[in-house]
Design a protein around this nucleic acid. Sequence first.
RNA 1: GAAGUUGUUUAGACGGUCGCUUGUAUUUAUUUAUAAGAGGAAAGUCCGAACACCACAGAGCAGGGUGCUUCAUAACGUGAAGUCGCGGUAACGUGAAGGAAAGUGCAGCAGAAAGUAUACCGCCUUGUUUUUUUUAAGGUAAGGGUGAAACGGUGCGGUAAGAGCGCACCAGUUUUCCGGGUGACCGGGAAAGCUUUGUAAACCCCACCCGGUGCAAGAUCAAAUAGGGGAGCGUAAAAGAAUGAACUGCUCGUUCAGGCUUCCGGGUAGAUCGCAUGAGAUGUCUGGUAACAGGCAUCCUAGAUGAAUGAUCGUCACCUGGCAUAAAAUGUAAAAAAACUGUCAGGAACAGAAUUCGGCUUAUGAGCAGCUUUAACC
RNA 2: AGGCGCGUAGCUCAGGGGUAGAGCGCUACCUCGACACGGUAGAAGUCGUUGGUUCAAAUCCAAUCGUGCCUA
Length: 117
Amino acid sequence: MKSYLFTKTDRILKRSEFLFLSKYGTKIHNKLFIAVIDKGKIDKIRIGITVTKKVGNAVVRNRLKRLIREYFRLNKDNISGNWNINLIVKKEAAGLSSKLINSSLHTLFKKIGKEYC
RNA sequence: GAAGUUGUUUAGACGGUCGCUUGUAUUUAUUUAUAAGAGGAAAGUCCGAACACCACAGAGCAGGGUGCUUCAUAACGUGAAGUCGCGGUAACGUGAAGGAAAGUGCAGCAGAAAGUAUACCGCCUUGUUUUUUUUAAGGUAAGGGUGAAACGGUGCGGUAAGAGCGCACCAGUUUUCCGGGUGACCGGGAAAGCUUUGUAAACCCCACCCGGUGCAAGAUCAAAUAGGGGAGCGUAAAAGAAUGAACUGCUCGUUCAGGCUUCCGGGUAGAUCGCAUGAGAUGUCUGGUAACAGGCAUCCUAGAUGAAUGAUCGUCACCUGGCAUAAAAUGUAAAAAAACUGUCAGGAACAGAAUUCGGCUUAUGAGCAGCUUUAACC
RNA sequence: AGGCGCGUAGCUCAGGGGUAGAGCGCUACCUCGACACGGUAGAAGUCGUUGGUUCAAAUCCAAUCGUGCCUA
């Protein structure tokens, strides 16, 4: 049975953790995203999302965050390991449809899987 | 039908699956059930308040704001109804609309002269001269040109030429009388002086208003670290008389301090409250031209904090484009176009609560209604 | 969420009612055997946008659009 839950324990919430990631993590690029990865302490994948003001107004930014969270909720079990991942969204992702973003995330995580898992 | 103008409504609907946030109940260690979950602007942060803390005897100065009248309101720079001015053929729109006869400043260039008035060309008189031209003294502001703006306008009289110098009419100013209006103001009359430039969104004057900071306000709980205060234990050994403090004018000398435990106070990280029952919403009645106010009934309707309200599928509805065509109606010599139906593809604006309300401003899809102007047809 | 600034030549900035300026840069010519330096001349601006006040607005007022900073 797959669990499609996605609670706050699966997410990075504190500013200090974000700063730690940006200091010590390694970066992987894509057309639409930048992923910053580091090993975490808990045996779980934890995800933080960063969307800067450059991307768009509040509606666009919130929509991107929701789409990314939705992707992780559905595909969490396909990714193993205990990683802390910070996803930074680039300007080009604004206004794209959900299908495009999902496929882009899929290729990104294949890349991550090759290098780490 | 077209163009315009004003007001108003709405922000696709329903259902399935998987999720997110909060409340309640239940189990208990995080399950299960159930309820609720963005806007007309949530935006800009341009005003006004509530609320919290700080300051404060009272008054004034400085500084800032507002500025036709009456009303509404908790308050406002907001709203309603009017007045006057301006724009528009009209519907209607729009105005920071007190004071320039309190004072000061400014008005480039051009022009004679930019506010005390003055005199370039011109007009007229007198003197010199045979005459013209020129020139000197004086009187003028009709005419000319400049400028955004030139010191009332028109006509008649008058004069050497002219001039409110005089008169008539008109415009305007001040004072005053009568009538209407709560008032801004409107209508009518009389007198005076003959006429006063513009700018206060320049300083300023007058009237009225304003203490400051903002929920990152503020309150409570409270790890850690540094330092403070109290109490207790220890001051044994080693090292040292170097450091600080007290006693003393100074020196010698004597005493205390450095460590550990615990309590108090303080408040950082963090957590909780503030935090949603309110100048509340909906319906209805009454008063008022209206803004709005009051009565009654019903209802409880988001509360996050790297920040919840999403994704996907189906059905129906709307718009645009392509393709296909049965039947009926209108019309025609015939066709085409439009409409209907089916199917495919695409579209569906502006935009996301962050303490809460009242406004303003800006962005924006669609619909409905009233009114105005006008073409064509009947 | 709340508060405070700044938009002028390609760049950095003056100008705060009378019609647009400085430095660097750019272009042409002179100088030099040639380059640099130097000299002379020139071009380049809807003063962020839209309204209003005024005879006249980069300047005063209002709205708006960008952009930066502060309060953890």
